[in-house]
Design a protein around this nucleic acid. Structure first.
Lengths: 168, 168
DNA sequence: GCAATATACTAGGACATCCAACGGTTTGGA
DNA sequence: TCCAAACCGTTGGATGTCCTAGTATATTGC
């Protein structure tokens, strides 16, 4: 990776915003930009860990979701809703997971429009192994302090509720 | 957009982690997943605002960066480092901005390897207009409380420093 | 019962990101 | 001095995301 910058580019941007008369929105701008950059860093770590398994984060999320479903199967639209991604993204992920033999498509017993995604035995095993490594190498070494983790969960939970992700 | 879910899927995932004996990493997992989702929501808002300008967030970031440079010009590699993205992403963005007449490439006066990106008059004007709308519609209505914004800046700043983004 | 509407999934296209590899330029040590 | 190593930007390929449109199946209303 590239060497660290001598200065925080986001803090610089915040100062630029303030010196241009946008002080009222400089802080939110900095917070939002920091979220963007943090996501990029975390995604790179996760993908690095998953690569040896032939998985990407999108595919892993789907595998993990299926592994927690009672029957190990979910309708495509349900998966799309729970993962909060576009239906076509699920189609894409399922295509690749199916090619890899980790899931199979099967028709819904009563609704002809719906397709069920079902975990195969290999899919379940791989999900388990990938989760173990992810827990050890990423989530277990996140770099966030314990109290900061709680703050993030609370702040981002409030935000997501306000954005209409969920109710309650 | 899709209707809100009855339950927070990330909180559910956290409970799943805990019930599978991974309590020690359940909270960081939830925090990281929440960052992923929050980034997605914010990016969608930003892109929605920028679309009428024919800009994406990646292109806007480059325009904004150039508009804050003293001379209105920056070497490609400098832009890549400050935006913290891969050089090929900058090449891609510059290609499109140049086609749109918002920037031009020019050779570096002393280093034949380096290419300078220069803002055109239209580029500077568009950056100004896009920033005004972004400030009003996104940063000014972020949905984060004032104190939460400060918390985010602090927490994510610590994280980014720890991840090697910058020193100091 | 049948037409109109709604829902589910997929195909094709645009865009961004990264990585690997390549050709041109500069730098630094033998 | 001169060549190897480092550096810079671009091209080509893979992946993911979204949007629009199209096909098939369900549901609703008259």
């Amino acid at each position: 990776m590239s060497p660290p910058l001598p200065r925080d580019p986001i803090a610089d941007a915040q100062r630029n915003w303030e010196s241009h008369g946008w002080s009222d929105v400089a802080a939110p701008m900095a917070a939002i930009t920091a979220i963007m950059r943090t996501q990029q860093i975390l995604l790179a770590r996760i993908e690095g860990v998953l690569k040896p398994f032939g998985l990407t984060f999108a595919r892993y999320e789907l595998l993990a979701l299926l592994s927690f479903a009672r029957s190990g199967a979910l309708p495509m639209n349900k998966a799309s809703a729970l993962l909060q991604v576009h239906p076509t993204s699920v189609t894409n992920a399922v295509d690749r997971l199916q090619t890899a033999g980790l899931v199979v498509r099967s028709p819904h017993p009563t609704d002809g429009r719906t397709t069920l995604i079902e975990l195969t035995a290999e899919g379940r095993t791989l999900a388990k192994r990938a989760t173990a490594v992810l827990n050890a190498e990423v989530f277990g070494q996140s770099g966030f302090g314990e109290e900061d983790v709680n703050q993030l969960i609370r702040i981002l939970g409030d935000f997501r509720r306000g954005a209409g992700d969920f109710t309650g």
